[in-house]
């Protein structure tokens, strides 16, 4: 990254370690992880299953405490407490939405009683639902909707929150391929429209390249940073055309090589940039 100097850092992770206690002593799931995410950036973290991606997300959201190292959100260190202005979209939409609230209720819930008037809350909810293409579904219940639509509700809830940092943990891993493509384009357009800073976790290499400005590649057991790379693709991107571009194909195979054949660096792969 060359332009990073002028941009505001939203998330700074330094020397992060997370270790489980087991019968045979401590087992590191995350090992000395350092990276940063700047304002307005769309950064993906891609890594094999079991690379501690969800654990990392939980630490960043304040749900888990890191064993060592520091995490700063907007310059404020988080230590076990929940950072202000961070929203998290889970993979399991059906269990993270509240089934006893309507779609609108779910979206409005986190922003109610935060000094906003009822009218402002309603307006923000409406806007967010509109942004994810759910006009007219406000009064429905989440369980009346398809999986893809439920995940849209979760995204709308996060948008209404106006987070400084939006964390997304494999958000499209449990929907069908067509829905997944739709949701990818949705989140890309939302990113453009709202300028939201997004940290997106996935195990899908194509998805990470297609969506992001920058890709972080993690290793498995324990999670280490293997690659931190800008995505040299212009926006807006297209599900078909972008994926055929040489830059896309090249970056994808580079990442695939790192993940699928660990220990055999692909020709031309840059050394890890730690910023």
């Amino acid at each position: 990254m060359t332009s990073s100097g002028e941009r505001n850092q939203v998330l700074g992770v330094r020397d992060l370690v997370y270790a489980y206690k087991t019968a045979d002593g401590d087992l590191e799931a995350i090992s000395n992880l350092s990276f940063r995410v700047d304002e307005g950036e769309f950064v993906s973290i891609v890594g094999p299953s079991g690379s501690g991606k969800t654990t990392l997300m939980k630490i960043l959201a304040g749900l888990l405490r890191a064993t060592r190292g520091s995490v700063e959100v907007s310059g404020k260190p988080i230590t076990g407490n929940v950072p202000e202005g961070v929203a998290l979209v889970f993979q399991d939409y059906s269990r993270s939405l509240f089934p006893w609230m309507t779609v609108e209720g779910n979206v409005a819930f986190p922003i109610t009683r935060r000094g906003l008037s009822a009218g402002e809350v309603a307006e923000r909810s409406r806007q967010s639902l509109s942004a994810v293409g759910l006009d007219g579904f406000a009064r429905r219940y989440p369980w009346e909707l398809s999986g893809g639509m439920q995940q849209r509700v979760a995204i709308a809830r996060a948008l209404a929150f106006r987070p400084r940092l939006l964390l997304m943990d494999e958000p499209f891993a449990s929907v069908d391929a067509q829905t997944k493509a739709d949701l990818e384009d949705l989140i890309a357009s939302v990113h453009q429209q709202f300028g939201t800073t997004i940290l997106f976790v996935t195990h899908d290499i194509d998805e990470s390249v297609y969506l992001s400005d920058r890709v972080l590649v993690l290793s498995a057991h324990p999670a280490r940073l293997l690659l931190d790379r800008e995505v040299p693709l212009s926006r807006p991107r297209d599900q078909v055309a972008t994926r055929e571009l040489p830059d896309f194909v090249h970056l994808r195979s580079e990442i695939a090589g790192l993940i699928l054949r660990p220990g055999h660096p692909v020709q031309g792969a840059d050394p890890v940039q730690t910023r």
Binding site: K58, A61, G62, L63, V82, E84, V86, A87, L88, F90, D92, R95, S96, F98, F109, P110, R113, R157, F161
Partner: peptide, 17 residues
């Protein structure tokens, strides 16, 4: 559901709410 509690935590929903 743990995920529902986590969601509430992330969105800063505490106490009586």
């Amino acid at each position: 559901e743990a995920l529902q509690l986590d969601t509430a935590t992330v969105y800063g929903i505490r106490g009586s709410r």
